[in-house]
Design a binder for these strands. Structure first.
Length: 1172
RNA sequence: GCUCGAGUGGCGGAAUUGGUAGACGCGCUGGAUUCAAAAUCCAGUGUUUUAGGACGUGCGGGUUCGAUUCCCGCCUCGAGUACCA
C-alpha cells in the first residue's frame, strides 16, 4: 500500500537535486569534450530579490514558480538552461536595522539569507531554505550577492569604465577618455560634438596643451559618463540620503514614506541622458508588455520643439533698449560728465591698480569710473558683477556713506570689495590676489545664459503670442536680473517655495503663485518688451527652467495671466479664448503673427524654426524629460566609490587594487559634521604611492595620502549588470564574465518580475548594457529580450464585527461621542447589517442592551475619567439610577477588526480556540454564533501585510499540502500577469488532483504501483486524452498561460481515471508533462516507472495529430443564432448532406413551426444556423 | 488631468481566427460510506419561469446568419504618472 506522502517525496528529491547538481548549467568548453553546451542555450532569470528579513509570503514565489516551470519545460525541450538566483543584498532596509540595532548589515543580511537569529532574537530559517522548499531548479553554484567584495569589485570596475568614457554624439556611442584627450590635443573642443555639461568654454589644441593638469581634469569631468556636479537633488532628511526620481512615490520616499525636499549637493551623476534616444529606440525590439514600454517612453519623455533665446533688457527703467554695459540710473547724463572728470584726475593708487586691471591679467574685463545706477564705481567687472573701490582717508561720515553705497550695490547684484590707497600702493600683490580669489568665488552665470534667457518650447509657432516669460524660482538668472524694487518680493517668494516639500507642491497644483522680477526681455522678432516673472509652475529641471508664456495657447500660462492680469493676445484665427486657452494643434490657423500669418501648425513651425536659425536666436531641438541619474548615496551599506580626491579633483583607484573594501565603522549614522557614515571609518584615505587604504595623514606628512570618497553607490549599481555575472562560472576572479561565456549566453531570454521596476532597474540596466556594448565589453545591446510582469497576489483579510457603545454629549455646541468601556461582543458575519454609522438602541436587541448596562462598572469615573461633566453629574448616584439615565441615550456602532487569517478553518469559519489563544484579553468577550456553534468572519481583499494579519506563509502550505500543491495552486489562481486574491480554502482542489494523479499510478492491489506494459486497452481513449493534453500544455506554456494548463491536467486525470487507464504508453509521457509544474511527484513516479535518471531532461512528449482525428461531430443546431439542440453527424458530409440531415430532423420542424427557412448557414465542423 | 489595463455565476477564473457562454477548481445542496467527524465517492448547481420557454458576459447603440470577441458613445474599478512648456 502506498499513499501520497508528499513531505517525504519532496524532501527526497530536493536532496537528490542538490547532491547531483541536476540543474547546473554548463558553459561552453574549449576542449574536445562537449557537454550540455552543445545544446542551444536558454537563459531564464527572475528579478533580483532583496533578501528581506520578513520572510516570504505566498505572493513572492509566484514569478519564481512561473519561471521555474518555463526553465524545466525548456530542459525537456533539449535546451541548456541557465536559471540562476542570487541576492541584491546591499540596500537601505539592512542599514536601517543596523542603525537601530548596531549590528553590522553584513551580519543581518547573512542571517536573512542563510538563517540564524534575526534582529529581534528570533530563530529564522532564511530566504534560501524557504526557496529550496518550493523545489526550484536554480543553479545555485552561480549565486551572486551584490554586497560580496568579489562581486562589487566588478561593480567598481564598471564605474571606472564609465568614468573613463565620454559620449560621442556624432558616432552615437561611448568612447574612452584617452581618445578624448587625443582629440583635445590635436584640435581642441571647437568641432567636438559630445554629450556633456552645459556652458563649456571653447579652447584650441594649443590652449589645451597649455592648461594645467588640474584644469584638464576639471574639463574632462564635464565630459565623463559619470561625473561630479552640484545638482538639485531629492533629499530625504529622515533617511539622511539623496533619492533618485524613481525612488520617490507621490512625493515621499519609496522606502518608509518620508518627506522629500529639494536641496543642492555635490553628487556623482550618470550621464544616462546621452542614451535617451537609444533607450527609446531600443524598446521597439523588445518583447515586453506594452504598458511597461509605455512607462519607459513616458519617463524618457521625448518632445520636439525649439529653443529660443530671449535677450535680457537688464534695466527696464530707461526707455527703449540700451547696450548691456549702460548700467546707469536716471541721472546718468549728469553723472557721466563727472565720471569722465574723475578718470582724468585719478589718484595714484587708482592709476596703479588700473594698469593691472585693464590688461585683463585677472581674466576678465574691467571698466573704471563706471556708472551703476546713481553711483560712480571705481572699477567694475560687468560680466562678473564685481566692483572694486579704492578709498582715500576715511572719515566717520564717509564710512557711513560707503556702507550705504555698498548695500545698494549689493542689492543690484554686485559684489563690492574695498581697498585703501595705502593697501594698493604698499602691497599690490596682496590686493590683486584678493581680487582674483574674490572673482573666482563669485557666481558666474553659465556662458549660454549670459545676456539671454534660453527657453524650450514645443510650440515655436505661437511665438508671437508671447506676452510674458516665467522662470523657475531656482533659475540661476533670477538673482542677477531682479531689480532693486522687486528684490524683496522675489526673495520672499523663493524662500517660501524652497520650503515647500515636493508633496505640498504636488498636492497644491491649483494655487497660482509667482512674482515679477522687474526685468524685461526683448521679443526676438517683434522687439516688444516682455516682462519676466518667476513662478513655481515652471520646473527648474525641465528644458531650460524657463518658458515663453503664450497664454492664448497654453492653459497654465492662461491661468497665470488671468491671475496676475497679464495681457492675453490672441494669435489663433477664429479661436475663442475668453474662457480658456486654445491648445488644439490640428485645426490651428495662426494670425497676428507677422510672417506666420495664415499658416497652420506644421507650416508655421517649420517656418519659424528656419527663421530662428537664420537670425541666430534659436534652433529646432528635441528635448527629453529624462534627467541624469544621481548616483551618490550618503549611506553605509553600498559599494564604495573607487575614488579619492587630489587637489579637489576625483582620481580613480587603479583597477588592480580593486575591490576597494567597505571599511568598518562604529556607527551607521552621519558624522557630527554631517558627512556620510564612511566619514567615521578610522582608515579611509588612499596612499597613492603604496596603493593602499590608510589612516588620515598626520600634520605635515603624507604628501601621497588623499581622502577617499565618502558616499556609496545606490542600490541600482549592483543590479544593473548582475545578469552577466551569472554567465561566468569559473573565471570569476579574472573577469566580470569571460568572452566565451558572454558569447554563448548573450542575454536573458526570459525575465520575470514585478512591474515596480519599470523606470528604475529596467531603465538603468538597459543604459549600462548599452554603455558596455559601446565600449566592447559585451556583445549585446539589450539585457532582457522577453519580459513578463507577474501580478500581485493579494491577501484576503478576515474581519470580525464588534459592537462599540458610546454616549453622546455636547461640547461647545458640537456633539461628541464618548466611548464607554463595556465587555466586548463579537458577532458572526451574518448576524449584523452592514452599517458604519452610529445608531440608536431601538435597532438593537433588548437583551444585548441589558447585558451591556449590566456590565457597566459601579463607578462612573471608571468609564469617563475624572472631571468629566457627565461623570460629575452622576457622581454618587446608584447604579440603577445611572442605568436609567443611560437608557435610551446610548449610541451603538459596529466596526470590523482584523483577525489572523491563520485562525480560519475551511471557508470563513473562525477557530474560536485559536482566537482566544491569540488575544488573551478576549476571553471575557461575548460571542454571538450562527446556527449553533458556527462563527464566520467577513472577507476583504487587500495587499498582504503583517499589519493586516492576512499573510500566508508558503512554508505552512508546503508543510500541510506539499510544494507541488503550492506550485500548482499558485499557477491555478489565474493569469500570471493579473493581480488576484489568495484563498487558502481553494487549495484542496489542486491537492485532491495530485492525490488522484498518484492514485492513477497506483491501481495495483492495495494501491500499489502498477503500470500495464501493453498498449492501452479499450480503444484509443487514453492516447486521445494524452495527446490532447500534450497539445494544450505545450501551447499554454509557450503563451505563459499556466492556469489553463493546470485545468487541462485535471481534465486529463479525470478522464484517465474514468477510463481506468494504467498503460505505460500514456502514464510515462503524462509524468513528463506534469513535471515542470509538480516536479517532486513526477520524479517519484518516473523512478517508479523504472528510470534511474532524473526526469528533468527527459524529452518532452511529441504531439501526434492522428490520435485526435474524429470521424463525427456533435453539431450545434441554431435557429436565428440561438442554439436549440445538437445532433451528431459524420465530419465528411458535404454542406448539402448536412443541410438535408438537419432539415430531416424532427426537432427542426418543431422549431420552424411551419415557416420556411430563408437561409441555412453551414460551417462544416463548426455550426449550423437556420434563419427564418 | 493624461497614459495603460480590466469589467463574465456566490468566489478564482475558461471560451483558438466572430461559431454550443460559464471549461477547471472552490463554495453550496442532496445522497453513499462512517457510532461520529475528517477523508473519499456519486448527483445537482447562471437567473427566472406558467417547465414550453424567456433572459443572461458593466451600460446604450451599431455591423453580422451569428458578438464575451469587431466598431461608436458612456459608466465603474485598478495600475502608472503628475504643472514636462
Amino acid at each position: 500500500m502506498s499513499k501520497y506522502h508528499f513531505n517525504d517525496i519532496e524532501a527526497k528529491w530536493q536532496k537528490y537535486w542538490a547532491e547531483n547538481q541536476t540543474f547546473k548549467a554548463e558553459n561552453p568548453v574549449l576542449s574536445e569534450v562537449k557537454g550540455k553546451s552543445e545544446k542551444p542555450k536558454y537563459y531564464v532569470l527572475d528579478m533580483f530579490p532583496y533578501p528581506s528579513g520578513a520572510g516570504l509570503h505566498v505572493g513572492h514565489p509566484l514569478g519564481y514558480i512561473a519561471s521555474d516551470i518555463y526553465a524545466r519545460y525548456k530542459r525537456h525541450q533539449g535546451f541548456n538552461v541557465l536559471h540562476p538566483m542570487g541576492y541584491d543584498s546591499f540596500g537601505l532596509p539592512a542599514e536601517q536595522y543596523a542603525i537601530q540595532t548596531g549590528q553590522h548589515p553584513a551580519e543581518t543580511t547573512k542571517v536573512n539569507i542563510e538563517g540564524g537569529v534575526d534582529k529581534n532574537g528570533n530563530e529564522i530559517e532564511g530566504y534560501r531554505k524557504q526557496l529550496d522548499r518550493i523545489g526550484f531548479s536554480f543553479d545555485w553554484s552561480r549565486e551572486v550577492r551584490t554586497s560580496n567584495p568579489e562581486y562589487y569589485k566588478w561593480t567598481q570596475w564598471i564605474f571606472i569604465q564609465l568614468f573613463e568614457s565620454w559620449y560621442d554624439a556624432n558616432l552615437n556611442k561611448a568612447r574612452s577618455i584617452e581618445e578624448l584627450r587625443g582629440i583635445f590635443s590635436s584640435e581642441g573642443n571647437i568641432h567636438l560634438n559630445a554629450v556633456c555639461d552645459e556652458g563649456i568654454t571653447h579652447f584650441t589644441a594649443f590652449e589645451w596643451l597649455d592648461f594645467s593638469e588640474i584644469k584638464k581634469q576639471e574639463i574632462l569631468l564635464k565630459y565623463r559618463l559619470t561625473y561630479l556636479a552640484e545638482t538639485e537633488v531629492n533629499w530625504c532628511p529622515q533617511l539622511g540620503t539623496v533619492l533618485a526620481n524613481d525612488e520617490i512615490i507621490n512625493g515621499v520616499s519609496e522606502r518608509g514614506g518620508y518627506p522629500v525636499i529639494r536641496k543642492k549637493m555635490k553628487q556623482w551623476s550618470m550621464r544616462i541622458t546621452a542614451y535617451a534616444q537609444r533607450l527609446l529606440d531600443g524598446l521597439n525590439e523588445l518583447d515586453w508588455p506594452q504598458s511597461l514600454k509605455d512607462s519607459q517612453t513616458n519617463w524618457i519623455g521625448r518632445s520636439k520643439g525649439a529653443t529660443v533665446n530671449f535677450p535680457i533688457l537688464t534695466f527696464p527703467k530707461g526707455e527703449g533698449t540700451r547696450p548691456g554695459y549702460m548700467t546707469g540710473g536716471n541721472n546718468s547724463r549728469v553723472l557721466l560728465e563727472r565720471a569722465k572728470d574723475m578718470r582724468n584726475n585719478s589718484t595714484d593708487a587708482e592709476a596703479i591698480l588700473w594698469e593691472y586691471l585693464k590688461s585683463k591679467k585677472l581674466g576678465c574685463k574691467f571698466r573704471r569710473q563706471h556708472l551703476i545706477d546713481d553711483f560712480i564705481a571705481d572699477f567694475v567687472c560687468l560680466s562678473n558683477k564685481f566692483v572694486i573701490e579704492v578709498d582715500g582717508k576715511i572719515h566717520g561720515n564717509q564710512k557711513e556713506e560707503d556702507e550705504k553705497r555698498t548695500s545698494i550695490l549689493n542689492e543690484l547684484g554686485y559684489k563690492v570689495i574695498r581697498f585703501t590707497n595705502e593697501e594698493v600702493i604698499g602691497n599690490l600683490d596682496n590686493v590683486l590676489d584678493t581680487i582674483s580669489k574674490s572673482i573666482e568665488q563669485s557666481d558666474i552665470p553659465p556662458l549660454g545664459a549670459r545676456g539671454t534667457i534660453p527657453v524650450f518650447t514645443t510650440r515655436p509657432d505661437t511665438i508671437f503670442g508671447v506676452s510674458f516669460m516665467v522662470l523657475a524660482p531656482e533659475h540661476d538668472l533670477v538673482s542677477k536680473i531682479t531689480t532693486a524694487e522687486q528684490k524683496e518680493a522675489v526673495e520672499n517668494y523663493i524662500e517660501a517655495t524652497a520650503k515647500r516639500s515636493e508633496r505640498e507642491r504636488m498636492a497644491d497644483v491649483k494655487t497660482i503663485t509667482g512674482v515679477f522680477t522687474g526685468a524685461y526681455a526683448e521679443h526676438p522678432f517683434s522687439g516688444k518688451q516682455i516682462p519676466i516673472w518667476i513662478g513655481d509652475y515652471v520646473l527648474a529641471g525641465y528644458g531650460t527652467g524657463a518658458v515663453m508664456s503664450v497664454p492664448c495657447g497654453d492653459q497654465r500660462d492662461y491661468d497665470f495671466a488671468k491671475h496676475f492680469n497679464l495681457p492675453i493676445p490672441n494669435i489663433f484665427k477664429d479661436a475663442d479664448i475668453s474662457e480658456e486657452a486654445y491648445s488644439d494643434k490640428e485645426n490651428t490657423i495662426i494670425t497676428n503673427s507677422d510672417f506666420l500669418n495664415d499658416l497652420n501648425y506644421s507650416e508655421a513651425t517649420e517656418k519659424i524654426i528656419t527663421a530662428l536659425e537664420e537670425k541666430g536666436v534659436g534652433e529646432g531641438k528635441i528635448n527629453y524629460r529624462l534627467r541624469d541619474a544621481v548616483f551618490s548615496r550618503q549611506r553605509y551599506w553600498g559599494e564604495p566609490f573607487p575614488i579619492y580626491y587630489k587637489d579637489g579633483m576625483p582620481q580613480i583607484i587603479p583597477t588592480e587594487c580593486l575591490p576597494l573594501r567597505l571599511p568598518d565603522v562604529e556607527k551607521y549614522l552621519p558624522t557630527e559634521e554631517g558627512e556620510p557614515p564612511l566619514g567615521r571609518a578610522e582608515k579611509w584615505y588612499w596612499n597613492e604611492k603604496n596603493k593602499e587604504v590608510v589612516s588620515p595623514p598626520l600634520e605635515g606628512s603624507g604628501e601621497d595620502i588623499f581622502p577617499l570618497e565618502l558616499n556609496t553607490m545606490p542600490g541600482w549599481a549592483g543590479s544593473s549588470w548582475y545578469f552577466f555575472r551569472y554567465m561566468e562560472d569559473e573565471k570569476r576572479d579574472e573577469v566580470f564574465a569571460s568572452k566565451e561565456a558572454l558569447n554563448y549566453w548573450k542575454n536573458v531570454d526570459l525575465y520575470i518580475g514585478g512591474s515596480e521596476h519599470a523606470t528604475g532597474h529596467l531603465l538603468y540596466s538597459r543604459f549600462w548594457v548599452k554603455f558596455m556594448h559601446d565600449r566592447g565589453f559585451v556583445n549585446v545591446e539589450e539585457p532582457f529580450k522577453k519580459l513578463i510582469n507577474q501580478g500581485m497576489i493579494l491577501g484576503e483579510s478576515a474581519k470580525i464585527k464588534t459592537l462599540l457603545v458610546g454616549l453622546p454629549y455636547n461640547e461647545n455646541n458640537v456633539t461628541k461621542i464618548h466611548p464607554i468601556k463595556v465587555k466586548l461582543s463579537f458577532y458572526s458575519k451574518n448576524l449584523l447589517p452592514e452599517t458604519t454609522d452610529w445608531f440608536k438602541d431601538e435597532n438593537i436587541e433588548k437583551n444585548i442592551i441589558d447585558q451591556i448596562l449590566n456590565d457597566i462598572p459601579e463607578s462612573f469615573t471608571n468609564i469617563f475619567g475624572e472631571n468629566n461633566p457627565i461623570a460629575n453629574r452622576l457622581k454618587g448616584e446608584a447604579k440603577s439610577e445611572i442605568i436609567s439615565v443611560l437608557k435610551g441615550h446610548l449610541l451603538f456602532k459596529y466596526i470590523s477588526i482584523p483577525v489572523d487569517v491563520n485562525m480560519i478553518d475551511g471557508v470563513d469559519k473562525l477557530n474560536i480556540d485559536k482566537f482566544l489563544e491569540w488575544r488573551n484579553a478576549n476571553k471575557l468577550a461575548l460571542y454571538y454564533y450562527e446556527n449553533g456553534n458556527k462563527f464566520f468572519v467577513s472577507r476583504e481583499v487587500e495587499k498582504m501585510s503583517k499589519s493586516k494579519y492576512n499573510v500566508v506563509n508558503p512554508d505552512d502550505i508546503c508543510e500541510q499540502y506539499g510544494a507541488d500543491t503550492l506550485r500548482m495552486y499558485e499557477m491555478f489562481l489565474g493569469p500570471l500577469e493579473q493581480a488576484k486574491p489568495w484563498n487558502t480554502a481553494g487549495i484542496t482542489g489542486v491537492h485532491g488532483f495530485l492525490k488522484k494523479l498518484w492514485k492513477l499510478y497506483h491501481s495495483g492491489p492495495d494501491e500499489t504501483f502498477f503500470v500495464d506494459e501493453n498498449p492501452p486497452s479499450g480503444g484509443q481513449g487514453g492516447l486521445k486524452t494524452l495527446h490532447k493534453t500534450i497539445k494544450k500544455t505545450q501551447e499554454d506554456i509557450e503563451n505563459f498561460s499556466f492556469n489553463t494548463s493546470v485545468s487541462s491536467f485535471m481534465i486529463a486525470v479525470n478522464e484517465l481515471s474514468a477510463q481506468n487507464c494504467n498503460s505505460r504508453e500514456v502514464l510515462e509521457p503524462l509524468a513528463i508533462l506534469i513535471s515542470p509544474y509538480a516536479p517532486h511527484i513526477s520524479e517519484e513516479l518516473w523512478q517508479k516507472l523504472g528510470h534511474s535518471e532524473s526526469i528533468s531532461t527527459a524529452p518532452f512528449p511529441k504531439f501526434e495529430q492522428k490520435f485526435l482525428v474524429e470521424s463525427s461531430k456533435e453539431y450545434p443546431i441554431s435557429f436565428n443564432g440561438k442554439m436549440r439542440f445538437t445532433m451528431e453527424l459524420p465530419l465528411d458530409l458535404s454542406k448539402e448532406e448536412i443541410e438535408s440531415a438537419v432539415m430531416a430532423h424532427e426537432k427542426t420542424a418543431q422549431y420552424l413551426e411551419g415557416r420556411t427557412p430563408k437561409k441555412v448557414i453551414i460551417v462544416p465542423g463548426k455550426i449550423v444556423n437556420i434563419v427564418g
